[in-house]
């Protein structure tokens, strides 16, 4: 598979240990949620065919105003939010999140994160990042990712 066309969009550098402090904020990321993101997130990225993520009638029948992001897409967006900041020299060893209010097309999803803890474990450099994302409807998810320098 050719990958040259992707290279200008990839991030090769990583956040250095000495440049990180507890309390540092990750760059806030804003993503427009449209029907394509919801449907492709479920079907193309995650292969989740559950109708509420691609069929508006099914979503309405389930009590929602429109199709909404599936949890795998939310989790993927959060994981990429973190790794697009820290870079490829860090391993994500744990990512956990709780879903709150669903995210619908037409809303902006704003993701923020903070370095909650910087520590060493078994001689390896570790960071805990707390993240959260929300829309005009309120908080969509919140969670924690643990990063380890291999």
């Amino acid at each position: 598979m050719p990958t040259d066309w992707m290279k200008p969009h990839l991030k090769y550098d990583s956040v250095a240990w000495e440049d990180v402090s507890e309390g540092d904020e990750l760059p806030t990321h804003v993503r427009e949620i449209d029907t394509s993101l919801v449907v492709l997130g479920a079907i193309s990225a995650a292969r989740d065919f559950y109708p509420v993520h691609h069929d508006k009638d099914a979503a309405i029948a389930a009590g929602a105003p429109d199709v909404f992001l599936n949890i795998l897409t939310t989790n993927g967006l959060m994981a990429s939010f973190v790794t697009n900041w820290c870079g490829p020299d860090w391993d994500v060893t744990d990512i956990s999140l709780r879903l709150l209010i669903p995210a619908f097309p037409g809303l902006k999803l704003t993701t923020t994160g903070t370095v909650a803890r910087k520590y060493e474990e078994d001689g390896r450099q570790m960071l805990d990042v707390e993240f959260g994302a929300g829309t005009d409807y309120g908080p969509h998810c919140k969670g924690t990712a643990t990063l380890r320098r291999p």
Partner: peptide, 13 residues
């Protein structure tokens, strides 16, 4: 392509 993930470990052979 959906996550807009920039990690070369996933896409730069």
């Amino acid at each position: 392509e959906i996550m807009e993930d920039r990690n070369p470990a996933y896409s730069d052979a």
